[in-house]
C-alpha cells in the first residue's frame, strides 16, 4: 500500500509543472556547484540546491590571533552571514554546528598554531539552508586544499503530517512539515556527524530519516566526486 502510494507520487512529480521542478517525494533538487570563483580567499565554492544558494570562502591555514591560538591543532572558525540584517542567535547556533562538523573531519593537528576560517554567505534561502551551508563549506575546504580525513555532506529530511518523508525540502515543504531533521554525514562510513531537528517524531521515524539521508548522501558524494573529476580533468 505504502509503496503504491509512493509510486503514484513519483509519477505526478515527473509530470509536475516547471515552476516546481521536483516531486514531493524522495528526490533531491537539482544541484550545482562552482569552485574557486573568488580571487581573495584560498578556497571558495558556491553551492546551489534548487533555489537555495550559499557561497563559502575559506582562508587558511593562516596566521592566528594569539588569544585564539591552540598549541596542538589549527583553530577553526566558521562565520555565517545572513542575507538580510545582522547575524543573530540562530546564526550563532548554526555557526557552531557547522564548525563542530568541520572540526570532526579536518586534520587540524597537521597545522598547529594556525587558523582556518570558513565564511559562509547566504545568497538565497529556499529551504534546507543548513544542509546547503554544510555542502558549500565542504566544497570550499576541498578547494582550499585543507587536509581532511573524510568529506561530509548535509541532508535535510521533512516529515509531513501523514508521516511521509521528503528529502531536501523547499521552504514551503518545511513550513507544512510536522518535523524537519538535518543531518551531516561523513563519506567513509556514512556515520552521523551532526544532527539538529525541529518538531516531534518517533524513534522509528528518526531511523527512517537517517537511512534515507544515508541513501541521499551517496548521491551527494557522487556529485562531489564528479565535480572534482571535472575540475582536475586538465592538468
Amino acid at each position: 500500500m505504502e509503496v503504491a502510494k509512493r509510486a503514484d507520487r513519483k509519477v505526478s512529480a515527473d509530470t509536475g509543472a516547471e515552476s516546481s521542478p521536483r516531486g514531493p517525494v524522495c528526490s533531491l533538487r537539482h544541484f550545482a556547484c562552482e569552485q574557486n570563483l573568488l580571487s581573495r580567499p584560498d578556497g571558495s565554492a558556491s553551492f546551489l540546491q534548487g533555489d537555495t544558494s550559499v557561497l563559502a570562502g575559506v582562508y587558511g591555514p593562516a596566521e592566528v590571533k594569539v588569544s585564539k591560538e591552540i598549541f596542538n591543532k589549527a583553530t577553526l572558525e566558521v562565520i555565517l552571514r545572513p542575507k538580510i540584517g545582522l547575524p543573530g542567535v540562530a546564526e550563532k547556533s548554526r555557526e557552531r554546528l557547522t564548525r563542530n562538523t568541520c572540526e570532526a573531519v579536518v586534520l587540524g593537528a597537521l597545522h598547529p598554531r594556525t587558523s582556518i576560517t570558513v565564511v559562509l554567505q547566504v545568497v538565497s534561502d529556499a529551504g534546507s539552508l543548513l544542509a546547503c551551508c554544510l555542502n558549500a563549506a565542504c566544497m570550499a575546504l576541498v578547494d582550499a586544499g585543507v587536509p581532511m580525513r573524510a568529506l561530509f555532506c548535509g541532508v535535510s529530511c521533512a516529515l509531513d503530517a501523514d508521516g511521509n518523508l521528503v528529502l531536501d525540502p523547499t521552504t514551503k515543504q518545511e513550513k507544512e512539515a510536522r518535523a524537519v531533521l538535518t543531518f551531516a554525514l561523513d563519506s567513509v562510513e556514512q556515520k552521523l556527524l551532526m544532527s539538529t531537528t525541529k518538531g516531534l517524531y518517533s524513534d522509528a521515524e528518526l531511523q527512517q530519516c537517517l537511512a534515507a539521508a544515508q541513501a541521499a548522501s551517496q548521491h551527494i558524494f557522487r556529485f562531489y566526486r564528479e565535480s572534482l573529476q571535472r575540475r582536475y580533468s586538465k592538468s
Binding site: 557552531r96 554546528l97 557547522t98 564548525r99 563542530n100 562538523t101 568541520c102 572540526e103 570532526a104 531533521l181 551531516a184 554525514l185 561523513d186 562510513e189 556515520k191 552521523l192 556527524l193 551532526m194 544532527s195 539538529t196 531537528t197 518538531g199 516531534l200 517524531y201 518517533s202 524513534d203 528518526l206 531511523q207 537517517l210 537511512a211
Partner: peptide, 15 residues
Amino acid sequence: KLCCLHKPGGSGLTG
C-alpha cells in the same frame, strides 16, 4: 517522542 536530537558535530555515530 523525540523533540530534539541535538548532535553538534564531533565523532560520527551509527544508527
